[in-house]
Simulated assay, not measured.
Amino acid sequence: MSAFTIAAAQYPIDEVRSFVEWEDKLARWVAEAKAGGASLALFPEYGIMELTAANAKARDDLAYSLAWLSDHRSDIDAAHERLAAEHHIHICAASCPMRVGDAYHNVARLFAPNRKMGEQAKIVMTRFEREIWGVSGGRELTLFDTALGKIGISICYDSEFPMIARVLAEAGAKLLLVPSATDGLTGYWRVRIGAQARALENQFYAVHSPTVGEAPWCPSLDSNRGAAGVYGPPDLGFPDDGVVALGALDQPMWLFAEVDLAKVDAVRAEGAVFNQRHWTEQSDDALAGLPVVTQSLL
């Protein structure tokens, strides 16, 4: 299919008291996404941190929270796998810490209705992740070949770096998922502007899902600001401002929007501009021979 409905979560970090309580919340959210007609449900970065409320040490100790959640990855993933199959929906799960050797990565997982799953680790760490929390970046990009189309994931800060999305676009991605967690409006706008820029440069869809709300008990996600958005290039077949859909700031909700990947093919072939095609004209090789001339206006 080329056209389908996507649901992007504005996801609240709740003080869940047990795995069962978290699983019930996840089941409600997925059921609501399916009831809204979604074929793909996108959850935000680090949304799984709410589960640490169920363990006193994981709740209060940043370092231990990484180990505790990583140790529960199999149960967390099993819940998503089951719901994807039950509701016949693709689910991009809230990213979760995963132990890799002596390091921890921040990993999003995409679950298909056929019970298959793929992973994408965040590549570039924020200052909080690298200086305080001790989370490390991954070194591999994944193109997800799904029944909906070819999909890439750029987790939060990754969306602010053009080459990550560019590599995925050149591999065939027509839809970029951008799960995020930002504690202020400046962070939200950085990710949103990044997502919109990536949609413009690569002439594809970028879909943003943030955490929202206050969670003072959670040291990693105590404050959460943002709005979900679905963005495309401001060109043929897309809105003039590139904003396909936009949620209500800071409100827990699903944002639903139809995406049509045939529009990506059309704008790349017939648009007013060819950003995706003309990318190489500003590559390192293309620019290497151009002189920089200084003109004094003093």
Rank of each mutant, 00 (worst) to 15 (best):
D61H: 15
F161A: 07
M125D: 13
G138F: 02
L83N: 10
R277E: 02
W133Y: 08
Q251R: 00
A3Y: 04
A85L: 08
D241H: 08
A41S: 09
T186I: 13
R109S: 04
A53W: 00
E129S: 10
L168D: 05
S136A: 14
F111Q: 01
M117Y: 05
K57W: 13
R139F: 09
Y188P: 01
D183N: 09
S209M: 08
L298C: 15
S2T: 09
C218A: 08
F128T: 03
L200E: 04
G172N: 02
F238P: 00
I76V: 14
V178L: 06
I153W: 01
I91W: 11
G101F: 04
N114K: 01
R166Q: 13
A262V: 09
A7E: 07
E119H: 13
L298P: 10
L287Y: 11
H105C: 02
N106E: 11
T280N: 08
M163S: 07
F4K: 11
A8S: 03
Y64R: 15
G184V: 11
P44N: 11
Y64K: 15
I89Q: 11
A94N: 07
L200D: 10
R277W: 06
A248M: 07
A266R: 07
E45G: 12
V243N: 02
D14Q: 03
A35L: 08
G194C: 05
S283M: 09
E140P: 04
P44Q: 04
E32K: 12
C92Y: 09
D241I: 05
G134N: 00
L200V: 07
A79D: 12
R190L: 05
G237N: 03
G172L: 00
R225S: 14
G289W: 14
A7I: 07
L168A: 06
S65E: 03
Q196W: 01
A199P: 04
P162T: 03
I89F: 09
A228L: 07
P44E: 02
A9N: 02
N106G: 07
I193L: 12
G229S: 04
A84V: 14
S70G: 15
D284F: 03
T52Y: 07
E129N: 08
I6W: 05
W29R: 11
T52V: 13
V243I: 06
M1C: 06
M163F: 05
